[in-house]
């Protein structure tokens, strides 16, 4: 009834998989709609914005495609985790299944959906950026930090959103602002203005750059990786603290 951490993780992926299966059950292409959607969006926005920013398509498209995919993953995971417990209230309150399962499932579901959209940036990076497997290996530690931070923050937000009913709307607004101030649509190199150094106060910059720079530009910075790992560890610490309160959460659902 109160499974350990690993059992909860395993169950959450099963839940995520069955949710995706049922979500796309009535569509012909199934979850590959996600791939198509991603390709269409990246092509449209990419063709438009490389002209706006006056950079080459090869410079812009792979960067934008992969940044957008990971941003959508981050943002959807956080938003969906804040609905996870209220949507599964009977499972937690009446059946006594661990809240962990449903919080992790929001993460798992988005990992699986993002995996379907992954071919789009993967092809663009391989073709236009000329990245090799070596780049990918250098990007791995940064990717792990990114995933750990996303999972940990979504866990904390999922619990807080049960206690405070207006919390989700607050985070929604914050995420909209974060999308603008994080280099997703634009690259810092587009703007040679020193006053914009303020963007480096945004922790999301390091969580993205730690894997994106080695992957696309072949640039590996120990400082960026160390910062992103430190951020991920802080998030993990917050999640461990929050998990101590998780036993009390059913009473608030």
């Amino acid at each position: 009834m109160n499974p350990g951490f690993l059992t909860a993780v395993l169950l959450s992926f099963r839940v995520a998989r069955s949710e995706i299966a049922s979500r796309y059950a009535r569509s012909v292409l199934g979850s590959f709609w996600v791939t198509l959607q991603q390709a269409l969006y990246v092509a449209t926005a990419g063709l438009l914005f490389h002209r706006v920013f006056n950079v080459t398509l090869a410079d812009y498209l792979p960067f934008f495609a992969v940044s957008l995919l990971f941003w959508n993953f981050l943002s959807n995971t956080l938003l969906e985790s804040m609905e996870a417990l209220s949507a599964n209230a009977p499972m937690v309150k009446d059946r006594g299944f661990s809240p962990d399962i449903f919080l992790f499932a929001a993460f798992g579901r988005n990992v699986l959906i993002s995996a379907h959209a992954l071919p789009v940036p993967a092809v663009l990076i391989a073709v236009l950026s000329g990245s090799s497997l070596g780049n990918l290996v250098l990007a791995l530690p940064g990717l792990v930090s990114f995933l750990v931070a996303t999972a940990a923050v979504s866990y904390v937000l999922g619990l807080v959103a049960v206690r405070y009913r207006d919390f989700k709307r607050l985070i929604e607004s914050l995420l909209q602002v974060a999308f603008l101030v994080t280099p997703i649509l634009w690259k810092p190199s587009f703007v040679a203005d020193q006053r914009l150094a303020i963007i480096y106060a945004n922790p999301l910059v390091y969580l993205f750059d730690a894997w994106r720079e080695p992957l696309i530009d072949g640039v590996f910075s120990f400082r960026t990786l160390a910062l992103s790992m430190a951020i991920a560890l802080l998030c993990l610490f917050a999640a461990v603290l929050a998990r101590r309160q998780a036993a009390r959460i059913a009473i608030w659902i």
Partner: peptide, 9 residues
């Protein structure tokens, strides 16, 4: 095993 409430788990 708990079967509580009529909420459908």
């Amino acid at each position: 095993t708990s079967l509580l409430g009529l909420g459908l788990g």
